[in-house]
């Protein structure tokens, strides 16, 4: 679901880094300082779990595939900024060691999948949890996936508007290609994963917050 290297020009990637860098610094100072010594192993494990979840491809009609993001758990258990840093780390590992995504588009992917998506899900969860805890978790997972997919599609569409020679696919192609799998398959899978994984983690009696 994330943008690969070479699909977005520095016109978009550099401003995205300019937005992400202070957020990374702020999140690192606020959530990964000396006080986080005890929570770091659990955060590391959840980050690794998100990485593994992202490698499992779900086939969608049309011959392509989609995948879950899996960092909504971190946003719900800790904070959306923790999810942002951890998703950035997942994207760095994917880019450097597995050739997926990329380092130039890292900030764009991190903002969409690590910050905007989990933050939207976190807001939905806090708004809906009084009605139903399980329903709120399900909705949070679904919303996070839709917001992330929409932002990724918007960045690609913006690139086409800025320079069609750089990214030749028009928004009429990009939006359905990004949003249809997300609305129909990936969103529901992410929602179910968020609900079941959080229930299982709470039952496993780990030192969760």
């Amino acid at each position: 679901m994330h943008v690969p290297d070479g699909f977005l020009s520095p016109q978009i990637t550099v401003p995205a880094y300019a937005v992400s860098a202070p957020l990374w610094a702020w999140a690192a100072r606020r959530h990964f300082g000396r006080a986080s010594t005890d929570s770091l192993p659990i955060i590391g494990s959840l980050t690794a779990l998100a990485f593994v979840i992202q490698t499992i491809m779900i086939p969608v009609p049309g011959g392509t595939s989609t995948h879950l993001v899996g960092v909504m758990l971190l946003a719900l258990l800790y904070h959306p900024l923790v999810a942002f840093v951890c998703e950035s780390l997942v994207l760095v590992v994917q880019a450097l060691f597995f050739g997926a995504g990329g380092i130039t588009v890292l900030a764009v992917n991190a903002l969409a999948m690590g910050l905007a998506g989990p933050f939207a899900g976190w807001l939905v969860y806090h708004a809906a949890r009084r009605v139903s805890e399980k329903g709120a978790l399900f909705l949070a997972g679904y919303a996070s996936m839709q917001v992330a997919a929409l932002l990724v599609a918007c960045s690609l569409a913006l690139q086409h508007q800025l320079d069609p020679r750089y990214f030749p696919m028009p928004p009429a192609v990009t939006f359905p290609a990004m949003l249809l799998p997300s609305l129909t398959v990936a969103g529901l899978a992410e929602a179910a994963y968020t609900l079941f994984a959080l229930s299982l983690l709470r039952r496993a009696k780990l030192a969760l917050p």
Partner: peptide, 21 residues
């Protein structure tokens, strides 16, 4: 040191989880 520790912990768990998967 903190990013290094987070990276090492995550990489170790990625390898372990992929193997277990």
């Amino acid at each position: 040191p903190t990013p290094t520790r987070l990276l090492v912990v995550t990489l170790a768990q990625i390898h372990a989880l992929r193997l277990l998967l």
